[in-house]
Amino acid sequence: MTTATAPTTPVLTPEMVAAIQALFPRYPTRQAITLPALHMVNAKLRHVPMAAIPEIAKVLELSPAQIYDTMTFYGFFKTEQGGYVRAWVCRSISCALRGAEEVLEKMCDTLHVHPGGTTDDGKITLEFGECLGLCDFAPAVLANEQVYKSVSLDQVDEICALMKVQAEQQANGTAIPTL
């Protein structure tokens, strides 16, 4: 756990608080906004810092423990910052049958990370995924919103290079939306 940030610099900006509050009318309880709030923070900061938890709890009128309890159930949310590109290599059965384990291993070698790790330059976080629902394109990789379909070992170098470009675009705010 990182040391606490100074109390004068809240993690949630006034805009984020307003965005969370804007969801109040949609749900009969505040607690239901836990996941949307966590997603909002995660999308902006690429992680959910510990300091954000009591702030979210305050907006939702909950105990920080309730937020933390829910958040840690979903392995999706991390307390350490990830890369600008978060990539999942699917390892479930349809992808595994078509070489996903080998793709994941080569991608780890190419990026010098273990599954779940982030490259030294902070650009790419590489994880394994369980069934991404892209079985018709096995083996599949999801990198932020970009889908790499039917990936062969020969394409791994190129895809890693593309993910680096994607990460730079994200970092300097010039990313092209995928839709």
């Binding site: 309880t29 607690q31 239901a32 906004i33 836990t34 996941l35 966590l38 997603h39 939702l60 309730q66 309890d69 829910t70 159930f73 979903y74 392995g75 999706f76 949310f77 995924g129 369980e130 069934c131």
Partner: peptide, 19 residues
């Protein structure tokens, strides 16, 4: 948030409720 169990209908409801 990437959890298979949320496809179970009451797991889904719990998740929707923020738990």
């Amino acid at each position: 948030a990437a959890a298979y169990i949320c496809g179970e209908e009451t797991g889904l409801i719990e998740s929707l409720e923020g738990k």
